[in-house]
Design a protein around this nucleic acid. Structure first.
Lengths: 193, 193
DNA sequence: TTAACTATACAGACTAGTCTATATAGTTAA
DNA sequence: TTAACTATATAGACTAGTCTGTATAGTTAA
């Protein structure tokens, strides 16, 4: 009957609870209850809560890559594809969250973890990958590199706008902040050409 | 002998532990042990852990206002005082944290709290106040308001850079990201004059 | 049969918060 | 000076519940 594996149910439930209430504040009992699954199904699929957290971080990373791919697939140039990075985050922000938008799930996860932890490193790698995507798209454009305006530095500026706008959008419950940041990035690229 | 009040010891200990390990992951026993204080001294000074958290958020807010005041006191114009906002965060980032820089303590605190909670609202108010400080400083400058470049929108751009750079600086352990964001803000203001 | 699942009980550490009783330092007033 | 009072601190036992993780026995479906 239930052709959804316990593992997938657990990842879905953990995704919702971790995002809404935070990771540390979410107990494994809450996860299995929401998943509608036995406790041993959790520990048969994951060695520990830590491993479930790692899988959660991986899933969010993959989810964003998929959203970006869908947004950028049919676009013709790097400029549009940089803006699609914002669109992917916007899509993410507009998911039907149980208790409202709370910013980037990965940044929130990192905020709960100690410096140097695997979890923070995993989130760091995700953000580096986003930045590299932006750099690669900008490198396709004929940037006029006057006044030290390299693709790398422009990409960093755009990533600051991205992360800052998502955090503040989550805090102020104003999802439009992300599209305003997108417009700022648009103008920056225009000026750099 | 010990002329430091239990309350101050508790706020200091909570400040360190909450920042380093997160709020939910820090138990009240850990706080009183680090403070070197009896448990009843916590509950004589604070009604609950929630109230200690609220006091922690207040203290971080006040701490930033003090850092900004010290950085901006002897500056002569709004341009420099906007850049002093970055310097205040940089000062904050260079504190001698027990376990390394982990970004903005207030944003991290908000990341652990559910949407709509008092704690998130308090952090939101802090960020709004920072933004208003930036707007007020920009309003002292003769901005050429071509292409919709108002003080408010320029301030939002600068605040995105601020929050984004702090989060990414904490993740990548690269505190210099904040000064690179400062340089970006500097160039933005220059262009807007 | 094999593998993945369920249900439930359990261990042991930890959680926030309360309680009683005691110590000490400073203030007030006879 | 002495005594009473107040405020703040201490130690440490205690409640009632939650935490992660394990153990065990039974069920379901390919």
């Amino acid at each position: 009957m239930s052709r959804v594996s316990a593992r997938d149910k657990l990842l879905k439930a953990a995704g919702e609870l971790f995002y809404d209430h935070g990771i540390t504040a979410t107990g494994v009992d809450a996860v299995i209850t929401r998943a509608g699954v036995a406790k041993m199904s959790l520990y048969n699929n994951f060695k520990s809560k830590s491993e479930l957290i790692a899988a959660y971080i991986d899933a969010r990373h993959q989810e964003w890559l998929d959203l970006f791919a869908r947004r950028s697939d049919n676009l013709s140039n790097g400029w549009e594809r940089v803006l699609a990075v914002f669109d992917a985050y916007q899509d993410h922000a507009e998911f039907d969250y149980q208790n409202g938008f709370r910013g980037c799930g990965l940044l929130n996860a990192a905020a709960e973890m100690p410096a140097g932890s695997q979890e923070r490193e995993a989130v760091n790698r995700h953000k580096q990958e986003v930045r590299e995507i932006v750099i690669n798209q900008l490198n396709e454009l004929p940037l006029t590199e006057e006044s030290g305006n390299t693709a790398a530095s422009l990409a960093e500026h755009i990533c600051f706008l991205l992360e800052g706008s998502i955090s503040l959008a989550g805090l102020s419950r104003d999802v439009h902040a992300i599209s305003r940041a997108r417009a700022m990035a648009d103008k920056l690229i225009e000026r750099a050409l």
